[in-house]
Amino acid sequence: MKEHPSQLFGVMGEFATPEQILSAAKQAREAGYKHIAAYTPFPVEGLAHAIGFRWTAVPLLTLIGGLGGGLTGFGLQYWVAAITYPMNIGGRPLNSWPAFIPVTFELTVLGASIFAVVGMLALNKLPQPYHPVFNVERFAHASTDRFFLCIEARDPKFNLAETSKFLQSVAAEHISEVKDEG
């Protein structure tokens, strides 16, 4: 392991209820901060929106996965039944499309589901075993009952003293520096 000088990643404050963190996040936006992250033990409605996150590609990826799965499914069956392995059974049509619907449907759902899950994980950059916020000892409560707001050091408006003061002004508890030791 190489020794890295630890860098400042951001300043983090803690809240006890979803309402508190929501209002703090809104105030942070209003104060002009851009790089804000919130960590909560369950999804808080409106929080992602409040910190400036509006659009996710997950539905689009799911659509692409579904279309891809469906087209692959039908294409495979058509190619097998009508082109590469045709079987003349009493002169019935080779492209008997109604019989191909169940497999087409199943592969549509399969493609869409895999794209939804893998796409969600990839966009979230998971798996990611290390993240600076894990260095904060109290952060273990983020998966139980505490709500954390972190203003990151890469924010142009970031200033250790000022930002800490700001967090204090929105009633955050246990304000601490987040160090990146990566």
């Binding site: 909560t40 033990p41 999804p43 992602a48 996710t56 759902v109 939804a116 952060f139």
Partner: peptide, 27 residues
Amino acid sequence: LGWRGSAHHWHRYQSAYLLLAGLATPL
């Protein structure tokens, strides 16, 4: 997988979960 409950993550997570529920129903 390093889940940390980030609001951005939850947002995509909920979107994926809802879509999966919608897909699993006809399935």
